[in-house]
Computed example of a mutant assay.
Amino acid sequence: MSLTSDFISELIRAANESDRLTHYETSRLFDRAIDTIRDMREQTGTVEAHRARDVLIDLRISSERARDLSAKEVRDALVDAADVIRTLKIVLERTP
């Protein structure tokens, strides 16, 4: 299994246990997801979106507000991050 697949699994596992995560763990996962998405977007040549609904903006806000998020909000953000990373992984695997 690749490091990317491992991280996707870690995000999904954390999402399923979001009520047990500390604020620090939650924030750290969001930050790692942000870094991973940025790196993968760079590798794919995807232009970083500067839209109000960009997942990176949502993750940054979630990271900064980790202490105030409900377990459901944490779960939703982690699943969104895993989905974006999975999609970028597929794109990278198809790129020659």
Rank of each mutant, 00 (worst) to 15 (best):
1 M>Y: 11
3 L>M: 09
3 L>V: 06
3 L>R: 07
4 T>N: 08
6 D>T: 06
8 I>A: 08
9 S>G: 07
11 L>M: 11
13 R>C: 07
14 A>K: 01
16 N>D: 12
17 E>F: 04
18 S>E: 05
19 D>K: 10
19 D>N: 06
19 D>S: 06
19 D>I: 05
20 R>W: 08
21 L>N: 02
24 Y>I: 04
25 E>L: 04
26 T>P: 01
26 T>W: 09
26 T>A: 03
27 S>Y: 10
28 R>D: 05
29 L>W: 08
29 L>M: 12
30 F>T: 01
35 D>V: 02
35 D>H: 02
36 T>K: 03
36 T>L: 14
38 R>G: 05
39 D>H: 09
41 R>L: 10
42 E>R: 08
46 T>D: 15
47 V>L: 15
47 V>A: 15
50 H>G: 09
54 D>Y: 11
57 I>S: 05
58 D>F: 15
59 L>P: 01
61 I>T: 02
62 S>G: 00
62 S>Q: 03
63 S>T: 02
66 A>E: 02
67 R>A: 06
67 R>P: 02
68 D>M: 11
69 L>T: 00
70 S>E: 08
71 A>R: 06
72 K>M: 07
74 V>H: 01
74 V>T: 04
75 R>Y: 03
76 D>C: 03
77 A>C: 07
77 A>E: 04
81 A>R: 00
82 A>K: 00
84 V>K: 06
85 I>V: 13
85 I>C: 10
85 I>N: 02
87 T>Q: 12
88 L>D: 03
89 K>G: 04
91 V>M: 13
92 L>Q: 09
92 L>E: 11
93 E>V: 02
93 E>L: 13
93 E>D: 12
94 R>Q: 13
96 P>V: 06
